[in-house]
């Protein structure tokens, strides 16, 4: 009885008796969620355009952030470092296309998936070989002062993160819908062969898409890096984008956003209200378990297309 009470009643009592604290928890979760969404966005872009499940997105986030912070520590001004880091991500995209994707055209998805695991390890190892594995502090000048709204304590930086995230999603949505390249991307996503046959240059498209995913990774890296320092564990945090994708569906940009927010809020609330009951640190696995349970009921994700099997 006491156990049931502790699980099903007390947490809710706590939520209602201290609504401001609860709101803070939710907002905190939403803001973390935005960060997850940013990483997940990179996955979705690549999956939509090339059908590749890019396990290396997390490593790209880490690599971009490491490059940026490494340059800044060498005394390069922020704006120049940003440009160089973005340029490096384009080079990474070109190299990946040339050395990994092109030889693997028409291979089974799972082979490509494994290749991206290889890319993950290479980027992590390479980044740390070049820039070292210490924790780097990153400050690109985003204001970071606490302030209060309606009794809630918030951080200016978090608001900025949310705004930048929203702007990126909006921008990408417009890009996909209204530009020539965007339309080509959607065509490629539907069918590689058909897209090739109407003259869409697949290689260029892939480079563009991996570069864009690299930029998105850079932005995500800046956000995470500013918040918790640039370090190896960044690529583990980025793994959390995977359950986000499962919730949102692999092909859906809105899905990546909503999924990120759900995971962000879900794990914060679970950690704070239920975590102490079972020893804490459930943030480590909560997102994955949530995704796992979710998969059992809706394998295609919230916004994914229903899978119809044919023979």
């Amino acid at each position: 009885m006491e156990v049931l009470n502790a699980i099903f009643v007390l947490p809710f009592v706590d939520m209602f008796s201290e609504p401001i604290f609860f709101a803070e928890v939710v907002v905190g979760g939403l803001l973390t969620g935005v960060m997850y969404s940013l990483v997940a966005l990179g996955f979705v872009l690549i999956f939509k355009a090339s059908g590749v499940f890019n396990f290396a997105q997390g490593a790209m986030v880490l690599f971009a952030a490491l490059t940026l912070v490494g340059l800044m520590e060498k005394g390069v001004p922020v704006w120049l470092a940003l440009i160089i880091a973005a340029g490096v991500m384009v080079i990474v995209a070109v190299i990946i296309e040339k050395l990994v994707l092109r030889p693997l055209v028409n291979q089974p998805d799972i082979i490509l998936f494994m290749a991206t695991i290889g890319i993950t390890f290479f980027l992590e190892g390479f980044g740390e070989t070049v820039w070292g594995s210490d924790i780097h502090r990153l400050d690109v000048g985003i204001p970071d002062a606490p302030f209060e709204i309606g009794g809630m304590l918030l951080n200016e930086f978090d608001i900025w993160a949310a705004a930048i995230g929203a702007a990126m999603v909006g921008g990408l949505a417009l890009f996909f819908r209204y530009t020539v390249i965007g339309r080509a991307l959607r065509a490629v996503a539907d069918d590689h062969q058909a897209a090739l046959s109407v003259g869409i240059p697949l290689k260029t498209i892939w480079i563009v898409v991996w570069s864009v995913a690299g930029f998105v990774g850079l932005v995500a890296g800046i956000m995470w890096g500013t918040k918790s320092g640039v370090q190896f564990s960044l690529s583990l945090i980025a793994l959390k984008a995977l359950p986000v994708l499962i919730l949102g569906g692999f092909t859906s940009i809105p899905g990546a956003i909503v999924g990120g927010l759900i995971i962000g809020v879900g794990e914060k609330v679970a950690e704070i209200y239920w975590g102490p009951l079972i020893g804490g640190a459930i943030e480590n696995w909560f997102a994955y378990m949530l995704a796992l349970v979710f998969l059992l009921f809706r394998p295609q994700g919230l916004f994914g297309e229903k899978i119809i099997e044919r023979v």
Partner: peptide, 20 residues
């Protein structure tokens, strides 16, 4: 530590190499 990073990198390259 450099050796560790190197090892990770080489594993990555090996995986890509074998997969291809």
């Amino acid at each position: 530590d450099l050796q560790k990073h190197f090892e990770v990198m080489i594993f990555g390259v090996l995986i890509i190499f074998f997969v291809i």
